[in-house]
Amino acid sequence: MLSVRGLEARYGSVQALRGVDFDVAEGEIVALVGGNGAGKSTTLCCISGLLAPSAGSLTFEGRDLQGIPAHDRVRLGLSHCPEGRRVFARMTVAENLQIGAITRADKAAIASDLDQIEAIFPVLAQRRTQAAGTLSGGEQQMLAIGRALMSRPRLLLLDEPSLGLAPLIVQALFAVIADLRRRGTTVLLVEQNARAALGLCDRAVVLERGTVIVTGRGSDLLHDPALHAAYFGGS
């Protein structure tokens, strides 16, 4: 579905990605894991078009993404839920969700998707008319994911959904992500919480200093001693 080849990106003189290669197949949950500054978010930004790569190629469903601006990639079925929630604070929860569907014109389908998202996140239905800025962190994260889903993406790019959330809420959120796949959405997930991400995903891509060092099945990597040593400390 998505293939990333030789992706390089730089912020000024700092090279953040030094040739990243991986694929995401339809119906998968793929986790990008790695330490701080490994290039996880940068990779997502290149895929969604928020950042222009300096080299390499991105192909989504057979289409070369080069030169397609971020806002047009949403129409292709790529939805990026950026790091740090970034809900529209002064708009209500319902307005936030409607903005998520702003590229779509099929009113009936939007309404049914809205119902579906409120079924996934019941708290959003309760807070429908509340300003998004007044929601708690976990609620805002749910809103951000719900909003990203309103464009009915074929591939959802999730950046650090667990950031700053209580462990119980993270569990619930991960259950929702697993559920998304059952509904036919492919997910590319960036996580610092590698243990949780590896438990959830089908495959994981481990990044370190801008390159892929390991790829493999999440459950295998979870017990990979080398990875343990590198990311979880101890043996």
């Binding site: 990026h80 970034r86 529209f88 903005i99």
Partner: peptide, 24 residues
């Protein structure tokens, strides 16, 4: 209208608005 909502989204968060498929 749609444009009005798009503008308030843009005002609140330009990056997030671009992620929604709006052309800032």
């Amino acid at each position: 209208s749609r444009v009005g909502r798009a503008l308030s989204a843009l005002r609140d968060d330009e990056l997030a608005a671009a992620c929604m498929g709006l052309d800032p």
